[in-house]
Design a protein around this nucleic acid. Sequence first.
DNA 1: CGGGATCCCACATGATACTG
DNA 2: CAGTATCATGTGGGATCCCG
Lengths: 145, 145
Amino acid sequence: MDRTIVDYQSNRLQEKLHKILGSVGGTASGCPIRNILDRFSDKWSTLSIFHLGDAGTLRFNELKKRIDGISQRMLTVTLRTLERDGLVTRRVYPQIPPRVEYELTDLGRSFLVQIIELGDWASVHSAQIMQAREQYAAREHLVVE
Amino acid sequence: MDRTIVDYQSNRLQEKLHKILGSVGGTASGCPIRNILDRFSDKWSTLSIFHLGDAGTLRFNELKKRIDGISQRMLTVTLRTLERDGLVTRRVYPQIPPRVEYELTDLGRSFLVQIIELGDWASVHSAQIMQAREQYAAREHLVVE
DNA sequence: CGGGATCCCACATGATACTG
DNA sequence: CAGTATCATGTGGGATCCCG
């Protein structure tokens, strides 16, 4: 059930790890890998993709209602970035008042699968992590004598 | 080979997605899921875990040498957080000069597997994303008339 | 309705200096 | 060697106002 102990030493994973470490080597900010990983780390990006994945197509304000606490500005900025990276399509209907619909691309759905797995991991291990945090405060640090 | 088009509509994934959306619902900053996802998004955390996963055990300065560009302060802060969350162990040898070794826990190795998959996704799709970015600059936005 | 433009501040992070 | 403490800064992101 709980796969906490993982065979991370499998050739397959080691291979991927070395490939990644090679790619991120130069911390030159131009590094595309780092650049993409930043999308995963962005709170608003992940939430936007979760909701678009769930709902299919959403208008700007529909999305805004679903993402609790996001400001108009950040939703705009986030969606622009996702559109620029090819994860989301933006469709404008030239009518008054304007209607703009957002939807995941195939690439975006592929991305969604990844962050679902992340979220699932977090969900499964959250209790373990919360426990570690509690112990941390009241712990003597490990000392080898 | 390239699984860009993914069956993201599988019951399994939808189930996980709904579970996640339920958990992140209240954007109360105390939310453990959001809280954990922040670790994934942290540049220095992911790099630290990559290198610890690759090397097994590393001393403070060994790790610092491997993570290009990290400041002493940020490495300390990062390692403390990872230790607090139970992802990394910190072992202090009381000798002069001091010797401190860091190593992934089982939980940390489980985490490592997740970010390897992320990095792999980024690596596989980076060309596609870079291409999307180039097109974005020179594109007429999609308008339905 | 769906933004764009500004202002502004908190906080994350870098640089530097000191220490057991 | 492995930090801690202090100071400096830049920028992510919220609040607000305006516009087609």
